[in-house]
C-alpha cells in the first residue's frame, strides 16, 4: 500500500501549531512500522495521511502518529487528556498569556515527560511535540540529548516548517 503524507504548511495555522503537527508527522515517518513506507506529498499544505486506492484518510496528526506506530494505548488516559485538552488547545490560541503557557509546559515536564526514554509511546510523543512547539527553548534545555531517531525527526519537522517573519512576534 502507498501511504502519502502531507506536512502542515497551512496558512490558517500558527507557526507553533504547524511545528507541533510536523513534529508528530516526522515522528510518524521516522518510527513507523516496517509495513508502512511514506511518500511525502508536497502539493498539499494541510496535514494529512492518505492511502492510495482506498478512501482511508486522516487529517489529525495525533491519529496519524498513533496509526503509524500502531499504538492506540492511553487514548483515555489523563496524559492524553492533558496533552490534547491543555497543551494542544493552547496551540490554537496564540494569544494565551505566556505565563499560562509556561506553567502548562512545566506541568507537562513534571508530570508526564520526566521519564522520556525509549521505547516511547505515541502518547508520550504527542505530549512532547505539543510541549516542544509551545516552548522549544524549555524543552531543548531539559532534553539536551534526545535519542537519535527523535533528533532526526525534530530536524526534519523544523525543515518542513518554514518560519515566517510574522511568527517572530511571539
Amino acid at each position: 500500500m502507498a501511504f502519502n503524507l502531507s506536512f502542515d504548511r497551512s496558512k490558517d495555522h500558527t507557526y507553533a501549531l504547524q511545528l507541533a503537527n510536523n513534529i508528530k508527522l516526522a515522528f510518524a515517518q521516522e518510527l513507523a512500522g516496517k509495513e508502512i513506507k511514506f511518500s511525502v506529498n508536497d502539493e498539499s499544505a494541510k496535514p494529512e495521511l492518505t492511502v492510495a486506492g482506498t478512501d482511508f484518510r486522516l487529517f489529525n496528526t495525533n491519529a496519524i502518529l498513533r496509526y503509524a506506530l500502531n499504538d492506540f494505548e492511553g487514548l483515555e488516559s489523563p496524559e492524553t487528556h492533558f496533552a490534547v485538552s491543555s497543551l494542544e488547545a493552547m496551540l490554537y490560541h496564540p494569544s494565551a498569556p505566556q505565563e499560562h503557557v509556561k506553567e502548562t509546559v512545566s506541568k507537562a515536564l513534571e508530570n508526564y515527560l520526566k521519564e522520556f526514554q525509549e521505547p516511547l509511546s505515541a502518547t508520550s510523543l504527542i505530549t512532547f511535540a505539543n510541549a516542544y512547539a509551545l516552548s522549544p527553548e524549555t524543552l531543548e534545555s531539559k532534553f539536551q540529548k534526545l535519542p537519535a531517531s527523535l533528533s532526526k525527526a525534530l530536524s526534519a519537522a523544523k525543515s518542513y516548517t518554514p518560519r515566517l517573519s510574522s511568527s517572530f512576534k511571539r
Binding site: 482511508f56 486522516l58 487529517f59 489529525n60 495525533n62 491519529a63 496519524i64 498513533r66 496509526y67 500502531n70 492506540f72 487514548l75 492524553t80 487528556h81 490534547v84 485538552s85 494542544e88 488547545a89 490554537y92
Partner: peptide, 19 residues
Amino acid sequence: NKEQLAQAAQWESVVKSGQ
C-alpha cells in the same frame, strides 16, 4: 480494526482540543 481505531483517535482529539 486499526483504521477505525485511528478514526476514533482522530475525532476524540478534535473534540478534546476544542476544534
